[in-house]
Design a protein around this nucleic acid. Structure first.
Lengths: 235, 235
DNA sequence: CGTCACTTTGATGACCCTCAATACGAGTGG
DNA sequence: CCACTCGTATTGAGGGTCATCAAAGTGACG
């Protein structure tokens, strides 16, 4: 692993996240699959590996990423329990998946699950979701500002929580957020600081964050032509 | 349509592209689907529309895009004959599809084709391809330079043509290339000019282009730490 | 031959990256 | 308990790539 990509053991700090209800549903839908544990920073699969199994996250979190020859990294997905990992077109994986915490996954045989009619529907839904997420990401990376990307990222991390004030556990470091959003780590920091200054969030340690004004974040993330608070504040 | 997005009638100039063999295969695999024609700039569907039909491009080309409230645009896909359009997770479309030329599409009933076992496999393959393309796009938008993105775009336009010298028809304007690659139109122009200066391509009118050195483009697009020609040339 | 849309080129500026220094937090050992 | 260390996060200064603004060039079409 490269020096710049080193990930601390701080990750083990809070690996006991809630096991989502969606995941429990899948435990019933897919009876008795193999369960396997990965430790933090361990690879579920690497780009180029044979794609014979499909992983379903039971507990923990996983990042899916691609590396350029000179070390530039794009994190394509940060996946939580209930999600499928390893959907690919060809015989081999086109990206790498790394566990972010101590993570449990169900192994499904790829051929078997794709041909089984009942399971096929779940996989199809997972693929549609994947397409939708990647479209969102492409719009963010191609056309949104750093602040808008970060707001969208935080909202994505909240999942379906509808409260206005939300306490979040971030399974990723600033560097990983940066590599997910196509930014430099310093830009992530500066915009977190700005959100904090503007009363949108609270920062409580590197992996804890509280959203104070979800509606404001939504407006920013949507790319609305908002009157910039930093400008009005200086009048 | 917005002023900035106006698209010229120049598109009709060369709408007689080759009807790919893959498309002919599909004509056999999916017997007697409805055929429908769209004129240039006509929408196949808009973001928010009910997603009841799946479109298979028979002839022409289509762009899939999303708009932000203030007019920023991200073109997510530029699709040629043989490709499926309208794959979406929910009941409604999460993006807009516009014909780039006079374009013929086959209409497939969404429910019917997804449940039919034989057709389902083709759709699954199409979805995998879509995921793969979107990952490539995200890596480009998030972590590649303007020159690298443009090189990758040109290679994607060549399809499976293995020759070194390739004459291309570009179904899109400079503005559309820019909105696909997350750049400004001027940046696209400048980098085309640079490629031309470096002997990588020829520019022959706004929609015609010849690739002279495909291998060099591949190296650039892959993100290899290349010795910059613009620097060495000035010594 | 004038208009119109698009493209190209140039000048300038903004946003974000890079480099650098400091701060913070957790773990370790004295 | 406190100094020390190490990795990460934050903040500041300066620079580069690309965006914006502006103007000229090109080609199609009436």
């Amino acid at each position: 692993m490269e020096a710049g990509l080193t990930i601390s053991s701080a990750r083990a700090v809070a690996s006991n996240l809630s096991l989502s209800s969606k995941c429990l549903d899948n435990l019933i839908a897919f009876p008795a699959p193999d369960l396997r544990w990965f430790s933090a920073d361990e690879a579920l699969f690497q780009e180029g590996d044979l794609a014979s199994t499909l992983f379903e996250i039971a507990q923990g979190s996983v990042m899916v990423m691609r590396l350029l020859p000179d070390g530039r990294r794009q994190i394509l997905d940060i996946a939580r329990p209930g999600r499928f990992i390893g959907l690919t077109a060809g015989e081999t994986h086109d990206c790498t998946a790394i566990a972010l915490q101590h993570t449990a996954v169900h192994n499904h045989d790829r051929e078997q699950i794709l041909t089984a009619p009942r399971h096929g529907a779940s996989i199809a839904a997972a693929m549609f979701d994947e397409i939708h997420r990647l479209r969102d990401l492409a719009v963010a990376l191609g056309r949104k500002t750093a602040l808008e990307r970060l707001a969208g990222f935080l909202l994505a991390m909240t999942g379906n929580d509808h409260r206005s004030r939300i306490e979040l556990f971030l399974p990723v470091s600033r560097l990983e957020i940066a590599d997910h959003l196509g930014l430099a780590i310093e830009t992530v920091c500066r915009n977190f600081t700005r959100m904090k200054r503007d009363g949108l969030i609270l920062l409580e340690g590197n992996h804890r964050l509280t959203i104070l004004d979800k509606e404001a974040l939504k407006k920013i993330a949507a790319g609305h032509p908002t009157q910039d608070a930093s400008k009005t504040a200086r009048v």
